[in-house]
Design a protein around this nucleic acid. Structure first.
Lengths: 303, 303
DNA sequence: CTTCACGATAACTTTTTCTAATGACAAATC
DNA sequence: GATTTGTCATTAGAAAAAGTTATCGTGAAG
């Protein structure tokens, strides 16, 4: 293993360009003997002379010239490390592995990715879409940097930040359009279509109706909100979906949307990451971009 | 100006690959606190965390990953510097700027270059063919590394090594083939064709005939041995050429070669370089290759 | 032949880096 | 749920590295 120092390489570069120990030392803000010694040690370490010391001038040897080319390249790259670090203190750089639950991903991700492309140009965004428990595990194991999920996650090892709260709305057949929106007791008597086991949104819906999630449901479980809405459109039952999903999912189905009131079911979506992650500042920034994305989405569609 | 050290980068690399301070430190043959401190200082200097210290594992941050890629590249290049130096202590590497006088270049260079290609593969050989005074000047100024010239050069700042001594032979018209070889007094009465002023070979020929080189010559001066021989072939006079040139120059001319004896004119060819050049060992090696080249040339053609 | 410019060297000081010992804290174990 | 264990951070003092000032030696220039 070589034992060269960057300092030696910097002195070398200075001497190579100045051709004069005194001036090179000055350029490095050290005294001439300090530079002389470092150059000498560099040469000793390499086992080769880098400079030819004439009485009136200092010149690179043939090997020195070859060496100088490489050293310049190396020093440039080392300086780039500093630049890179400086850039990274302002915003996240490199790779961001972001987990998103399935009841958020399809509606929010396109906008998030587009916005990150603007605010964090060059950031390498990896998306992992799966259920909350798996996201939590992968986050714990360091295979994700952050996740967008429904709060609370209640992992003591995680930081949670809320991003937005949205209503959960009732989706029923067009045929029911005129009818009053059922309250939650009435809802319990209807055929409620739900997502498969594991989706937090399923639990939230059940919770709203005061049905224990352990209780087996008689209804058919859907693997996506889209499926549920299509089933509702076919007159099979009713379902709950997050408001965010309304524009996309109800566009091409003969269903109508009803808003509950008193109580109004909601879910809070937020971002979580490991408390130990030192890039917390950057992750807060990312969370802000996510928040902005949802705001835009609402402005575009909600009105 | 950044103040990173290669040591820090090596520790960083070790920690990144081991994911464990203790084992990384062991790999670097230092104690764990030493490595901890260096990593800490590296992070402080960069103003960014590189690692996420979990209770049970140490992981790179997103920025750390980006950083690691560059650091690996840099360290590899630094190690190459050592390799390069090691390789160069055994033989010359990089660039060799070699001056050669015109009465040697055409005969010896092809072989020298071919042989250097074998013994010093990858060496970037630059040839400068010009007269001795200019070679001496360029060598002094550091624009050449060495020169192949007729000795002595008698520059106190130069090291001279003799490479070979060769005869100077008489070239005369085919018509004179049977005649006895003139001695130097007789030669002085003949029409002796010479190279232009400045060629050391001209001076050597004049010197052999005891003619002061300052004396204006009545004959036509040729710009190359080749020209001289062609003129001899045309019956204009006689000339002297170095033995080395015989095979090439007399092949396609109706001339014959005569050897003087008692005294036999010779010239000694050698290599010179600045005494201050620290690559003397390597230049001796180069000289050896030149010597070998002349030996081969003689073996091929002389017999 | 003296002076000058310039790099090398020496003696000593300051700074950096190391080791050894210990602390703090979370995870694993009993 | 107290204890042990594994792991990184911190501290104090020792060792090593790098810097400074002063001085020497040498070849070039006046």
């Amino acid at each position: 293993m070589t034992n060269l120092t960057i300092r030696q390489l910097r002195y070398f570069e200075a001497l190579a360009s100045h051709g004069h120990f005194g001036r090179a030392a000055e350029a490095c803000s050290v005294t001439q003997p300090a530079l002389s010694v470092q150059i000498k040690e560099l040469e000793e370490e390499l086992g080769t002379k880098l400079f030819e010391r004439g009485a009136r001038q200092v010149r690179l040897t043939g090997f020195g010239e070859e060496f100088a080319l490489r050293v310049q390249d190396i020093l440039r790259r080392v300086d780039e490390l500093g630049d890179l670090a400086r850039a990274s203190t302002e915003k996240m750089v490199g790779r961001l592995r972001l987990g998103v639950i399935p009841t958020i991903a399809p509606y929010l991700l396109p906008r998030i990715i587009a916005n990150l492309g603007h605010s964090h140009h060059g950031l390498d965004v990896h998306i992992r879409e799966t259920l909350t428990p798996r996201l939590v595990q992968e986050l714990s194991e360091g295979r994700l940097d952050a996740a967008i999920v429904a709060l609370p996650v209640s992992e003591p090892a995680f930081t949670e930040v809320a991003i937005f709260t949205e209503k959960m709305v009732l989706v029923r057949s067009d045929a029911d359009a005129g009818k009053p929106v059922p309250n939650k007791e009435e809802l319990r008597e209807m055929r409620l279509l739900l997502l498969e086991e594991g989706h937090c949104f399923r639990d939230q819906a059940l919770s709203f109706c005061n049905i224990p999630s352990s209780l087996p449901q008689e209804g058919l479980d859907g693997s996506s909100l889209s499926t549920l809405v299509q089933m509702v459109g076919a007159g099979i039952g009713v379902t709950l979906i997050p408001e965010m999903a309304v524009p996309v999912e109800t566009r091409s189905a003969s269903v109508c949307v009803g808003h509950f009131k008193n109580p109004q079911p909601t879910r809070t979506v937020g971002m979580v990451w490991r408390k130990t992650n030192p890039l917390a500042d950057h992750l807060h920034q990312i969370a802000a971009v996510v928040r902005q994305s949802t705001d835009e989405l609402r402005a575009d569609e909600g009105v």
